[in-house]
């Protein structure tokens, strides 16, 4: 098991952003947290990435506790924040070199990482240009390549396709799928777009108002609730849960 999330909770001053969230990810698996804006996806992901401390529960990444051994966890993950940018004054290559230097002090390894990222991102000559001149899609590809260049045990991607046009979104989804099947990398994704996510993920977790309602393979969930797509599943699950909560 690459990731085991155990009753992870985060209480902000007024909002309970994550309420005892539990799920797990196997090696080579693509797991997607799906839910509308404000559901608690980013909060959950940030706790697993060791950026913020949970108010309850824990996440075990490659055998290390996010609460007690955050430094060890960081050696095994990469994280791509949603709507992330990169240093505009650097060229694409500068950025890859800089980030490689952050992940390793071994120069040979760093060179290998950069080479891998250059191939994966598919930006070619444009890597010589300043990032300030890149389009959204190009930046996302660069950052995604950066996130997978070190072959982390778990790559955490927050809304990897949001804000992109269809072509770029498809390219990114294909890339994630290929890396998972060919290189046995594990992914934790999030998305508020419930329709597109079933093309890419092996397993999804439906989250709303901080609560993870149900986890399963998209086809199983659709069959179980008798729906055509995950959006309908979401509606059914969340509504029935809320009704039972009140009762």
């Amino acid at each position: 098991m690459v990731l085991e999330v155990k009753e992870l909770s985060k209480q902000y001053s007024k909002v309970l952003a994550a309420n005892k969230v539990s799920f797990s990810i196997e090696e080579g698996e693509i797991f997607a947290l799906i839910g509308p804006n404000g559901a608690g996806k980013t909060t959950t992901i940030r706790m697993i990435s060791t950026l913020i401390k949970p108010t309850g529960g824990d996440a075990i990444v490659a055998g290390f506790s996010a609460v007690n051994e955050p430094a060890r966890v960081r050696e095994n993950i990469t994280y791509l924040p949603d709507e992330a940018g990169a240093y505009k004054n650097m060229t694409g290559n500068d950025y890859l070199n800089f980030m490689a230097g952050i992940f390793t002090t071994d120069l040979d390894k760093a060179r290998e990482y950069v080479k891998r990222a250059q191939e994966i991102c598919g930006l070619g000559e444009r890597l010589e240009d300043k990032i300030g001149s890149y389009s959204r899609g190009m930046i996302r590809k660069l950052l995604l390549a950066r996130a997978v260049m070190t072959r982390p045990k778990l790559a955490i991607l927050d809304e990897p396709t949001s804000g992109l046009d269809v072509i770029n979104a498809i390219e990114i989804r294909k890339l994630i799928k290929r890396l998972a099947s060919e290189e046995k990398m594990s992914f934790l994704l999030s998305s508020h777009n419930m329709l597109e996510i079933e093309f890419v993920s092996d397993k999804v977790g439906i989250i709303s108002k901080g609560k993870l309602h149900v986890v399963g393979k998209p086809c199983e969930l659709k069959a179980k609730y008798g729906c055509d797509n995950l959006e309908e599943v979401f509606e059914k699950v969340v509504n029935s849960d809320e009704v039972s909560d009140i009762a």
């Binding site: 060791t50 430094a71 960081r74 994280y79 924040p81 992330a84 240093y87």
Partner: peptide, 15 residues
Amino acid sequence: KLDKTLETLLSAPVS
């Protein structure tokens, strides 16, 4: 902070 490069850095293996 706004470009989230800080989040990227702080989730990387560096103190």
